[in-house]
């Protein structure tokens, strides 16, 4: 049923630290690696070795440049996947009941056996978190690695989403955001975790930690004067080399 479930106390989700993400795309690769061979249809690629490769991904890393009013611009890497919204518009638009939000932990999933591939849920999502697989014709999205987090066949340290497990910078955290005492909730509290596009009223469960304030980049290193170029006219051996190479 595509009605949203009653509010659950457990809200599993991710906390993504925009301060520490280095934009290495390891989470993108590990996500694709795990999810192409586990839950549901594989994540297909089209023209993978050709001129115009494209494919289905559940997690993608954008990079932005932010220019403060004063001082140097900052580069911020920005991983984006399903935010498992509390008020998920992708769920209620589904005509077949394929798209649903789990009552027990709030994970938003697609039952591929009921999906008709109409794409309306992808239209309803503001975040671009859903992609229609071009080979299978069904909607794919982040499952929060539902087949890892409860999987007792895996060692305990692996029972978290593949993207979190693989992140070399420790920029991704997984936990219960419905529990105010959980590590992720405390982290959100401490660092001022934020929602994406809050004006659309989707109430995302996943939170983003804003980059910490940076120094302004105006101070010049004390060694800088020593690095200033001394000779404007080249002479000696290097001068000769320069002139000779110029002639060739």
């Amino acid at each position: 049923m595509t009605a949203l479930p009653p509010k659950s106390d457990v809200k599993l989700g991710l906390v993504i630290d925009l301060d520490t993400c280095v934009g290495c795309h390891a989470c993108v690769v590990s996500c694709k690696g795990w999810n192409t061979e586990n839950y549901g249809a594989p994540l297909s690629d089209q023209d993978a070795y050709g001129e115009n490769p494209s494919g289905t991904f559940l997690n993608r890393v954008h990079s932005y440049e932010v220019q403060p009013e004063q001082g140097a611009a900052q580069t911020i890497h920005f991983p984006k996947s399903c935010l498992h919204c509390e008020d998920a518009p992708c769920v209620t638009v589904c005509p077949t009941g394929a798209s649903y939000k789990r009552a027990e932990d709030g994970i938003v999933l697609v039952n591929e056996d009921a999906c008709i591939g109409c794409g309306l849920c992808a239209w309803a999502c503001p975040y671009g978190a859903r992609e229609l697989d071009q080979a299978a014709g069904v909607m794919k999205k982040c499952t929060l690695c539902v087949d890892r987090i409860y999987n007792e066949n895996l060692p305990e340290e692996d029972r978290e989403p593949a993207c979190v497990r693989t992140c070399p910078a420790g920029a991704r955290h997984f936990g219960d955001l419905g529990d105010a005492e959980s590590d992720v909730s405390k982290l959100v509290q401490e660092r001022g975790g934020m929602d994406l596009m809050p004006e659309l009223g989707t109430k995302p469960v996943n939170k983003y930690l804003p980059p910490r304030p940076k120094d302004q980049g105006n101070e010049i290193d004390i060694l800088a004067p020593l690095l200033a170029p001394i000779a404007t006219e080249t002479s000696g051996f290097l001068g000769w080399l320069d002139r000779t190479l110029e002639k060739i």
């Binding site: 925009l18 993108v28 115009n52 490769p53 494209s54 494919g55 289905t56 991904f57 993608r60 890393v61 954008h62 990079s63 932005y64 440049e65 932010v66 220019q67 403060p68 009013e69 611009a73 900052q74 580069t75 911020i76 920005f78 984006k80 794409g119 992808a122 239209w123 503001p126 671009g128 992609e131 229609l132 071009q134 934020m194 929602d195 994406l196 596009m197 809050p198 004006e199 983003y208 804003p210 980059p211």
Partner: peptide, 29 residues
């Protein structure tokens, strides 16, 4: 700025897209 939540640092612009080619999102929306 609201999409990335980075508006209170400054003006945001795309620096690098997440993929070099196209994808379903770009074609469809």
């Amino acid at each position: 700025e609201t999409a990335t939540g980075l508006g209170n640092i400054g003006k945001v612009r795309m620096f690098e897209p997440p993929h070099t080619g196209t994808n379903y999102l770009l074609k469809e929306m």
